[in-house]
Amino acid sequence: MVPGSSPNLVINPLVTNGFTKLNTSLMVPLSATKLALLLKDILRLKVLIILRHFLLLRSSLLFIVFLLLLLHAISSYVQNAFLHGDLHEVVYMEPPPGLRRQGESVVCRLKKSLYGLKQASRNWFSTFSDTIQKAGYQQLKADYSLFTKAQGTSFTAVLIYVDDILLTGNDLQEMEGLKAFLLKRLCIKDLGDLKYFLGIEFSRSKKGIFMSQRKYAPDILQDSGLSGARPEKFPMEQNLKLTPTDGALLNDPTKYRRLVGRLIYLTVTRPDIVYSVRTLSQFMHEPQKPHWDAAIRILNYVKGTPGQGLLFSATNNLALRAFCDSDWGGCRATRRSVTGYCVFLGNSLISWKSKKQTNVSRSSAEAEYRAMANTCLELGCDTYWKI
């Protein structure tokens, strides 16, 4: 016990798992660490996970959802995921309270990554990738978080984000074998049939699968203090043109950036607010009062439609259809046009985007052709995802 500590000290379960069961560290004399980095209170740090490349994640989720229409799906959770990552650098840390006897002058030489290390997430994903590829799964180049295995008529797909795993396929025996394989090497917990994944709810019925963020939307309203706001019927006023010099600068731009960031993730299942959120995301560096008012209006619209989402029909002809449109010089600041398109697989919407074009179009026809070119490019990507 550390001098000055309480005799009734209760050791955190993370400590016991990380230092005993997972063989995370090795106790070595303190003199061996004179030139090494000494990490203090490493177990008190928590990693802030920022969702990056959410468009790739959305594509993977939609790919998985179509598998769910015909296949079986389960979700799993990896306990203490980062502690499974192998550490290749020499790193030392002070032992947590309760793991060093009184008078001992020793430190821990880490053998596994811990939460708080910059390389922890990379080491964990490398460990998981190597493990699942040993089971015969291939990593997709379009999205490195998606692994598939096909043998004859058997098909299984695994999607992972940090420590959440989504497993689906048409071969229950293969899925059970994979769970047993991962359980021997990783501490996974079977959460049963897929119902909730990364803030997205999945509801299955005879009509198909409904994907929504019914719980996430009210959380945004509550965090912004607008739970009792008056609902709006549409997210943005018609013909509203915002510019970088519309009005007075906000005193605290961080609240605007936080709100728009959360709305961006809401567009994973809400294509009806994509254009409005894209417009507001252009002013993150210097948001002004009109931009904030427009963001509040989107929240009021979300207040009236909290359960809006996507329905993937169980009866589909699996034919790709796409629709696109464009304005002409819609952006007043740059005079560039805005492209919008949506792609359907049968009757189900699988891809959508609203984006400013890279070049200035000299006519409305040129803007329309650019929109069609971007849509055809997206169709090529969606064809790649088809089974």
Rank of each mutant, 00 (worst) to 15 (best):
residue 102 Q to V: 14
residue 313 S to H: 15
residue 247 G to V: 01
residue 26 L to F: 09
residue 291 H to P: 00
residue 270 R to F: 04
residue 338 V to W: 04
residue 335 R to E: 12
residue 343 V to C: 06
residue 67 L to Q: 12
residue 248 A to N: 08
residue 145 S to H: 11
residue 191 L to M: 08
residue 47 V to P: 03
residue 162 V to Y: 07
residue 277 V to H: 02
residue 165 I to Y: 01
residue 202 F to K: 00
residue 122 R to E: 09
residue 134 K to Q: 13
residue 29 P to S: 02
residue 152 G to V: 08
residue 138 Q to R: 05
residue 255 K to Q: 13
residue 257 R to M: 02
residue 231 P to R: 07
residue 31 S to N: 12
residue 163 D to M: 06
residue 152 G to K: 02
residue 350 I to V: 13
residue 374 N to I: 14
residue 339 T to N: 07
residue 350 I to D: 00
residue 267 T to M: 06
residue 387 I to V: 10
residue 124 W to Q: 01
residue 189 K to Y: 10
residue 45 L to I: 14
residue 349 L to F: 05
residue 376 C to M: 07
residue 168 T to P: 02
residue 348 S to P: 04
residue 279 T to F: 00
residue 54 F to D: 11
residue 197 F to T: 12
residue 150 A to V: 15
residue 90 V to T: 15
residue 61 L to S: 00
residue 172 L to W: 10
residue 307 G to E: 14
residue 234 F to P: 00
residue 225 G to W: 09
residue 381 C to S: 14
residue 243 T to L: 00
residue 227 S to E: 10
residue 55 L to W: 06
residue 102 Q to Y: 07
residue 72 H to N: 09
residue 85 G to I: 05
residue 339 T to D: 06
residue 258 R to H: 06
residue 216 Y to P: 05
residue 280 L to E: 04
residue 107 V to W: 00
residue 35 L to Y: 13
residue 24 T to H: 02
residue 265 Y to N: 11
residue 116 G to W: 04
residue 12 N to S: 13
residue 278 R to Y: 11
residue 368 E to I: 01
residue 257 R to V: 04
residue 91 V to I: 15
residue 225 G to Q: 09
residue 172 L to T: 15
residue 236 M to W: 02
residue 44 R to C: 13
residue 364 S to R: 05
residue 149 K to W: 08
residue 327 D to S: 06
residue 155 F to D: 00
residue 38 L to A: 11
residue 333 A to D: 15
residue 344 F to I: 09
residue 375 T to R: 07
residue 280 L to Q: 03
residue 354 S to L: 05
residue 278 R to G: 15
residue 237 E to L: 12
residue 104 E to I: 01
residue 299 L to E: 04
residue 204 R to F: 08
residue 350 I to W: 00
residue 10 V to M: 07
residue 87 L to K: 08
residue 51 L to G: 14
residue 269 T to N: 04
residue 236 M to H: 02
residue 320 L to W: 00
residue 158 V to H: 03
residue 148 T to R: 06
residue 64 I to A: 12
residue 141 K to G: 11
residue 387 I to G: 11
residue 37 L to W: 08
residue 215 K to I: 12
residue 67 L to D: 04
residue 201 E to D: 11
residue 122 R to C: 14
residue 339 T to E: 07
residue 106 V to C: 01
residue 76 S to A: 12
residue 132 I to F: 03
residue 21 K to A: 14
residue 135 A to Q: 06
residue 79 Q to D: 13
residue 312 F to S: 00
residue 168 T to F: 05
residue 146 L to N: 02
residue 303 K to L: 10
residue 78 V to E: 10
residue 337 S to C: 07
residue 60 S to D: 06
residue 8 N to T: 15
residue 137 Y to H: 04
residue 243 T to N: 04
residue 119 Q to F: 05
residue 158 V to Q: 08
residue 353 K to L: 13
